[in-house]
Every structure is written in C-alpha cells, then in structure tokens.
Amino acid sequence: MALKLDDNIFIAQLDGLASWVRKNSLWPMPFATACCGIELMATASSRYDIARFGSEAMRFSPRQCDVMIVAGRVVMKMVPVMQRIWLQMSEPKWCISMGACASSGGVFDTYSVVQGIDRFLPVDVYVPGCPPRPEQLIRAVLDLQEKVQRTGTINAREFRDRDHYEGPTPLATELPVEELVVAPGNYRTGTRLRLN
C-alpha cells in the first residue's frame, strides 16, 4: 500500500480497538455497603444476568477490576477506605455511583453520611433510584460502555486533563476549619487525623 498515513490516524484506530476490547469486559469491583448491594447481587443472579454484557466477573480485589460500583451509602468512617480502594485499582478505571445514597446521600441527610461520593471521588455514571432496578444498573453499564468507546484512548490520555474537582458545589461547612472535629482523612494510610 502506497498510502501515507498520518500518525494520528493510526493511533485513533488503535484507540478505538482498545476501547472496544475494554468496554466489553468491564470487570466490576462491587463496593457494596448497603441495600443497593443486594440489588447488585440480584443483577448478577439468574433473572437479570449481567453476564450478557460482559460484566459478570465480580472481583473483590481492586487490582483486577476496571469499574468500581459504589452501591450504598458511604459514611465518614468509610470514606478513607473507599478512596484507598479506588487508588488501588489499576488504570484504566471507571466509577459507577449506584443509588440515591451514593449519588447524593438519598434520604440520609444526617451527620455521618457523605452527601454524594462525587465530593471525594471522580464519578463517571450516576444511577438514580432507591434502589435502582437491575435494569437500570444494566443500562448504566451500557452507558459506561458507550462512554468508554467514545472517549477511550489506548494510553488513557483522556484522564490526564481531568485534574479539577468534578463534584457539586461544596457545601458551606457550619464551623470554621480550625474547629472541625474530624480532620481530613488520609487516604494513603486509610486513617483520619485529628487537626489539633
């Protein structure tokens, strides 16, 4: 073939190939904390059978997974754990926030529940519902597949420029920083530090 191809055309096609391969075997890491976790189990069991979409291989080791499904509410004690698990997953990785609680706190607007995990983690797909029906979760997996196909690159360049906060506007805290009781969690060691 005497055609002279630009480098970028070549890369674009490989990007598409890589994304196509990736999207059809998204292995979920079920970060199931509460009720939504049971619906996640129902999605995996015989009636709904998420295996039809290549996502049945739930692995509880973050190292082996591509997509973290946060199913259920996340509370203060759990945030550092969640961030640590997210950091342990290898690239490329995505995050589905399943259910009202994980997305916004849901009915639990209380002192200990985080009002949406997107305040602390980058989230790719939100699933509404309390709990979402299994069909909705499957839809979310399909949406994520589409997102992977559209934006995916072979060396994960698309993540590099997402270096800013993507969550909702931070809530005004009611106390000045120096009076806050629980200081920023250190996700690298999975613990919290006291400020004073």
Partner: peptide, 13 residues
C-alpha cells in the same frame, strides 16, 4: 457540624 465533608478530594488525573 460539617464533619462529614471534611475529607480530601481525589481528582481523576
């Protein structure tokens, strides 16, 4: 008192 929002944020990059 706002303790629930007092954690570090991780960006994607």
């Amino acid at each position: 008192h706002g303790e629930r929002h007092n954690f570090q944020h991780l960006t994607r990059a």
